[in-house]
Every structure is written in C-alpha cells, then in structure tokens.
C-alpha cells in the first residue's frame, strides 16, 4: 500500500516565479492497483512521481510505502522499493554498458555495490530467458552495448530491468511518449503483461486518454497540483474519451497537449 498524506511542493519559493506544483495532495493506493494518471501540462503529474521516487523532496506532508515512512529518504535509498521507467528511452539504461551489464545493475537495485564481480555467468543465463519473453530477439544480444538499441528496445529492456527485483511500486512516466505508435503499442502490451504477471502496484502517467482508460483499474486526473477526478473499477471501464475531454474542459486545463486518439 502506498499512502500520500497532504503533500505540497512549491518551486522557486519566495520569488516572483513561485509555482505551487503540488497542492495539499493525498492519495492512497492499494497493493496491486494499477493507476493511470492524466492531466494537462503543469498539472503536477511528473512532480508527483518525482516526489514519490525521491528525486524531489516534499515541502510538506508524508509519504508511506507500506508501513514505512519514506518522506525524507534519499532517492537512491528509496530505489529499494521503487522502480521507474522514464519518458526518455535513454534515461533508463546506460548506453556504455551491455544489455547484460545493465540488467545486472538492476538486479542489485537497493543493494550495496561491493567489489564482487559485477555479473556472473549464471545470471546471464537468467537474463537471456527473461529477454526471450520480450520477443524482440534481444536474447542473442546480451553482450551488445545498450547504446546500439532502438528507443523501443531500450524501453522494453528498462521495463524488464524495473521488474527483475519486484518493486513495491512501479512508476511509469509517459514511458511510451517518445516512441512511434507501433512500438508504443508493443511496449504498452509488454507493460500490461509484466504488471499483471508480477501483480505490481503501478502508477502510469499518460497523455493518451484511450490508454488511460484501457489500462489499469483506476484513473486519476490532476489539475493545479490536485487530484480532481478519481475513478476505478467498473465506472472506469465505462469511461469514454469524450467524457475525459469534457472533464478537461471543465477543469480549464489546456487541451493543447491532449492526444486525441480515436
């Protein structure tokens, strides 16, 4: 269970550019929930994810993962509980290391890095099997530098890496936004598969309203740093894109960045 209690975050505090990005936000996510998050630019979606992951620190409020309070915990410590896939396909992997080496880094997420060997033969065999499940032919390229992969392949590998050690929370920040439609679909299908198989508690930001409705069991809409709409279960399944668009209108959120698919 993830619990966020009355958190707030202001950028450029005390200056003329003061910007209250997250505004007294509370949210409780049950184990196994798959939450999609929508909202206009500047609604605070990415900031929320960064606060959860610890890349940013909250000004006020508390964050709990299970029973544990992580509000003040540093990003690299919190990584023990949280795995992320970023929007930029380059962000989730290291281009100068091989696929296998990247996976070995993820395999040790949350552990102290010692002077033990960075990767063992037996590990590689496991990674090979895991890569096979992606159906991208990457199982034969274990020793290839990740920099040689396409954006879609890199996101797929990043997803796999995020789940090598089961996280308490998986954060997906528009992780298909930089991909072409076909690749985006492959990665989304893969996301669904991995989340289901591992019963991962997941938060996914997306600008694609269709995906936001189709994926997950709960949908949240953000505006001005608050949650303005929260729907789950059957009610969510019945949603249509036009319903959400109407909400955007009501919330005077800019429509400019809403992708109208379907």
């Amino acid at each position: 269970m993830i619990e966020i209690k009355n958190i707030a975050k202001t950028f450029h505090k005390g200056t003329i550019n003061e910007n209250r990005v997250i505004n007294d936000l509370s949210l409780r996510i049950e184990d196994g929930d798959f939450v999609t998050v929508i909202g206009g630019n500047g609604a605070g979606k990415s900031t929320l994810l960064n606060l959860l992951a610890g890349s940013l620190e909250v000004d006020e409020g508390h964050i709990y993962i299970g029973e544990k309070e992580v509000t003040k915990m540093k990003e690299n410590k919190r990584a023990k509980y949280i795995a992320r896939v970023f929007q930029d396909p380059q962000s989730g992997t290291c281009k100068d290391l091989t696929i296998a080496e990247n996976m070995s880094i993820a395999q040790r997420r949350g552990k102290v890095r010692s002077l033990k060997k960075g990767i063992y033969r037996e590990e590689k065999a496991v990674y090979k099997e895991k890569l096979k499940e992606l159906n991208l032919g990457l199982e034969n390229r274990l020793e290839a530098k990740v920099g040689l992969l396409s954006g879609g392949q890199r996101q797929a590998v990043t997803l796999l890496m995020a789940t090598l050690v089961k996280p308490e929370l998986l954060l997906l920040d528009e992780h298909t936004a930089a991909l072409d439609p076909k690749t985006a679909k492959t990665v989304l299908d893969l996301t669904n598969k991995i989340v289901k198989e591992n019963r991962l508690t997941t938060i996914m930001i997306t600008h694609n309203l269709k995906d936001a409705i189709a994926m997950g069991n709960r949908l949240i809409m953000m505006n001005h740093g608050r949650i303005v709409y929260d729907v789950r279960g059957e009610a969510k399944q019945k949603l249509e894109v036009k319903d959400l668009l109407r909400l955007y209108d009501q919330e005077d959120a800019g429509l400019s960045d809403v992708m109208l698919f379907g």
């Binding site: 990003e75 410590k77 990584a79 795995a83 992320r84 380059q90 552990k111 890095r113 010692s114 002077l115």
Partner: peptide, 25 residues
Amino acid sequence: NTEFGFSIVATGSNDQMIRANGVNS
C-alpha cells in the same frame, strides 16, 4: 568489472539511471 565499477561507468553516462537503481552517485 565489479559491481562498484559498473556503477561508476553507469554514473558517467547516465546518473539518473544509476540513482534510480539505488546507487549513491
């Protein structure tokens, strides 16, 4: 070729990634 060595290489090319994987960059 150690765990720590990998972390240094990864820090150089992508410090966001290495922090997200629990390493103090």
